[in-house]
């Protein structure tokens, strides 16, 4: 899995400033180190949706509230639920750097964000392949916290996928995933090709504050 340095820089708010050799080296080192030492893990499963006033996945505890996720999944034949994590190593690295080196802290934070997105992309790809085998098309992945999809869905996803046992992922009372560099998401399977574009940033509740280069203005 390759962590894209440009993505790392984007997360760091980079806008063509002059970067010294030292800083380049540091970023490269931290990217390489993350790729070599972290052990990302993924788990996912496919469920049958039922649409009433909310989306219910059959034979699970999963019930998705909110208009946005309803619209996102409306008409889906099946629903994939996924969870990915970089594991405890990412937490430990940040904790250590925070006490000794803030430059490495902020870079690592961005490296891990880029990395976990890669892991999520790869899992999404596997899900896509499965859908294709069944002659179905997937839409984009949608996570708790986007739009009005409630954050407290995290708890349900963590237990429905048995994340604690399978990938060592837990969720706190305040709906924070621990290890933090983790993503959960929901993907719909449809019988028609899904070409409605999806702009992650446009759907993000932070879009007005975010300083990163992104697609929110599309």
């Amino acid at each position: 899995m390759k962590i894209d340095k440009n993505e790392v820089l984007r997360y760091l708010g980079y806008k063509n400033q002059q970067i010294s050799d030292d800083l380049h080296q540091k970023i490269d080192f931290l990217i390489q180190n993350a790729a070599e030492t972290l052990k990302p893990k993924a788990v996912w499963d496919i469920f049958q949706p039922e649409f009433s006033e909310k989306v219910i996945l059959k034979n699970t505890c999963l019930q998705f509230e909110g208009q946005d996720i309803f619209n996102h999944l409306k008409g889906a034949k099946k629903v994939a639920v996924m969870a990915v994590t970089l594991g405890i190593g990412a937490e430990r690295a940040i904790l250590k750097y925070q006490h000794t080196d803030m430059v490495s802290t902020v870079i690592s934070d961005a490296v891990f964000d880029a990395f976990i997105e890669c892991v999520a992309d790869e899992t999404e790809q596997q899900i896509k392949e499965l859908a294709q085998k069944e002659g179905l098309y997937i839409n984009s992945r949608y996570s708790p916290g986007y739009g009005d999809f409630p954050l407290n869905t995290q708890k349900m996803i963590i237990s429905a996928l048995n994340c604690e046992k399978k990938i060592g992922l837990t969720v706190t009372e305040s709906d924070i995933l621990v290890p933090r560099k983790s993503v959960t998401a929901v993907i719909g399977f449809f019988s028609e090709i899904q070409n409605k574009p999806f702009y992650k940033c446009l759907n993000c509740n932070m879009k007005d504050k975010c300083k990163m280069e992104c697609d929110k203005n599309v």
């Binding site: 708010g13 400033q17 802290t105 870079i107």
Partner: peptide
């Protein structure tokens, strides 16, 4: 925007 976060931290 003449410096970005890692540079501020350095």
């Amino acid at each position: 925007g003449e410096m970005f976060l890692p540079q501020l931290m350095a």
